[in-house]
Design a protein around this nucleic acid. Structure first.
Lengths: 106, 106
DNA sequence: CGACACACGTGATCC
DNA sequence: TGGATCACGTGTGTC
C-alpha cells in the first residue's frame, strides 16, 4: 500500500559548518531491559496483553519512513532558498520563513 | 525527581482537530536507574571516568531547546501559509515549498 | 573535552 | 485493531 520509493538516501541535512552529518548506520545493540513495577499497583494500562509482541518493527520502520520524508522536504527547501549555505534545520526553516515574507511583501 | 519541568508547552499545538499533536505530558514515573552489570563486561568504553556523571541532562535539555525552536518555526510557517488545513509537519513543509515556488514564478 | 546538531528507537495518543 | 504522528531521551560524530 504505501511504500513507494526505495528509501535510503543520505539526505542529511546537517552540515552546520561543513559538517556532513549523515552517517550513523546500523544500530548498537540491545541494551537495558525493563523493570518490574514496584508492586502494588494496578494502574498500568496494560497495553499489550500478555501475548508476545507482534512486531514492534512495524513502528520502527514506520517512523523511519516518516523521518525520511521530512528530511526530503528539508532538502528541497534548502535547494530553493537563495542563499542558504548550510545551516541546521532550525535556521534553514527560519530563513525560509523570511524568504516567504519577503516575497510576499513584493 | 529529575528533570526539571520548567518548560512550557506552547509550541503550538493546541489544536485538536488540526494537527497539533502536542499532547504528551509528564513523564511516566520512574524509569530505570542503573542496573547492575551482570559481571563480565569488560567491553564497555568507559566514557565517563569513574566519577559520577556530570550531568547528561545538559544534552537532554539542549535537545529540548533545539526541538522547541524547530517547532516554533513550524508554527510560524503554518501561520503564514494561506491554506494550510492541518497537515502534519511533512505535508506542511511540502506545501510551503509549493507556495514558495508559486510566489517565485510570479 | 564540551557544544552542537542529527538520527534512531520507543511509549503514547488519536482516528 | 492497526496505522499514523508526535515528543522525548540517548548514542554518536564533528568541531
Amino acid at each position: 500500500m504505501v511504500l513507494p520509493q526505495s528509501e535510503k538516501e543520505k539526505s542529511g541535512s546537517g552540515m552546520k559548518n561543513g559538517v556532513d552529518f549523515d552517517h550513523l548506520d546500523l544500530y548498537p545493540a540491545i541494551r537495558r531491559g525493563e523493570e518490574s513495577r514496584p508492586a502494588a499497583d494496578h494502574e498500568k494500562p496494560q497495553r499489550k496483553p500478555g501475548n508476545g509482541r507482534e512486531g514492534p518493527l512495524n513502528h520502527i520502520e514506520a517512523e523511519r519512513q516518516r523521518r525520511e520524508k521530512l528530511n526530503q522536504k528539508f532538502y528541497a527547501l534548502r535547494a530553493i532558498i537563495p542563499n542558504v549555505s548550510k545551516m541546521d534545520k532550525a535556521s534553514l526553516l527560519g530563513d525560509a520563513i523570511s524568504y516567504i515574507n519577503d516575497l510576499r511583501s513584493k
